[in-house]
């Protein structure tokens, strides 16, 4: 069954304390090649049957109304993926 993937990230100007904590943990494990980490969310919306433009539009609206808070987050991608 196809899925609609929605990705949400904290706005660039919002400090991301979780990302910062992850960034500071990486060097302890020897991963020293990264200067920063930002943590976001990925949602997978499963669709029975075909992904019509109407269903995709519903996903976009759900992403703006529920899956993200526009005060602190941006919806960075809404896309269709095939079977896992």
């Amino acid at each position: 069954m196809p899925r609609i993937v929605v990705e949400v990230m904290p706005k660039p100007e919002i400090l991301d304390p979780q990302g910062k904590a992850i960034a500071s943990a990486l060097p302890h494990l020897g991963f020293d090649g990264f200067s920063g980490v930002r943590q976001g969310r990925r949602f997978e919306l499963t669709v029975e049957g075909e992904v019509t433009e109407g269903i995709l539009e519903q996903a976009r609206r759900a992403a703006e109304d529920l899956l993200s808070n526009p005060v602190i987050e941006d919806v960075v991608d809404v896309r269709v993926e095939g079977d896992a």
């Binding site: 904290p10 919002i14 400090l15 304390p17 979780q18 904590a21 808070n69 005060v71 602190i72």
Partner: peptide, 17 residues
């Protein structure tokens, strides 16, 4: 109330986590 947009702004994770 902030999620409902009855008050402005939002709350995120404490800076010390």
């Amino acid at each position: 109330l902030t999620e409902a947009h009855l008050l402005p702004g939002s709350m995120i994770r404490n800076d010390h986590l």
